[in-house]
């Protein structure tokens, strides 16, 4: 019986220790929806929360979160940080551009070095030309950036 009790204590601790101080990281593709993916979990899995625990890969000093293979527009090919940012934040940036405001849009303006004074214009120009920027549902980050550039 002592073993049974011990087993239950262990199970109890598992429930408590799940999802603590741990990280997951996976990111694929260059288009919309290329964000970390987490499938629907069964109830037991929510308790145990095991699937995404622990860091995978040795990207201690990661600069981007895994979009290095996305094609880059020729004009601003030197601005690796901007390219990575757009590729890594496709979905949230699309939200902000459609809304004409938000933190992701502000950060785009910072990276594109748009002067503070003309940011209002910049935001509304992007919003008004949403369909010229996001030309198709499977548009890639490089195209998005090229289309934004062409509006400048």
């Amino acid at each position: 019986m002592r073993k049974v009790v011990a087993a239950f204590i262990v199970v109890g601790f598992i429930a408590a220790s799940a999802t603590v101080c741990l990280a997951s990281q996976s990111n694929t593709g260059c288009g919309l929806g290329s964000i970390i993916f987490k499938g629907q979990e069964a109830l037991l899995f929510q308790v145990l929360a095991v699937t995404t625990n622990g860091t995978s890969g040795n990207q201690t000093f990661g600069i981007s979160s895994g979009t290095l293979n996305c094609s880059q527009p020729s004009k601003i090919v030197g601005n690796e940080r901007l390219n990575n940012y757009v590729a890594d934040n496709m979905d949230n940036l699309a939200n902000d551009i459609a809304r004409g405001q938000g933190e992701y849009l502000n950060t785009l303006a910072v990276l594109m070095e748009v002067p503070e004074a003309s940011r209002g214009d910049f935001y509304s120009r992007l919003q008004n030309n949403f369909t010229q920027i996001y030309t198709s549902p499977d548009v890639k980050s490089g195209d998005v950036l090229r289309n934004i550039e062409s509006l400048m």
Binding site: F13, I14, I36, T51, D88
Partner: peptide
């Protein structure tokens, strides 16, 4: 990926821990 052994091992120090540096937006997505 096996939950119970993960929980037990993390309590008794059987995993190495590392620092990682990533863009904050990646953490925010997570």
């Amino acid at each position: 990926t096996f939950g119970p052994s993960f929980a037990v091992k993390s309590m008794v120090g059987l995993y190495p821990g590392y620092f990682s540096v990533l863009p904050y937006y990646a953490k925010l997505q997570e």
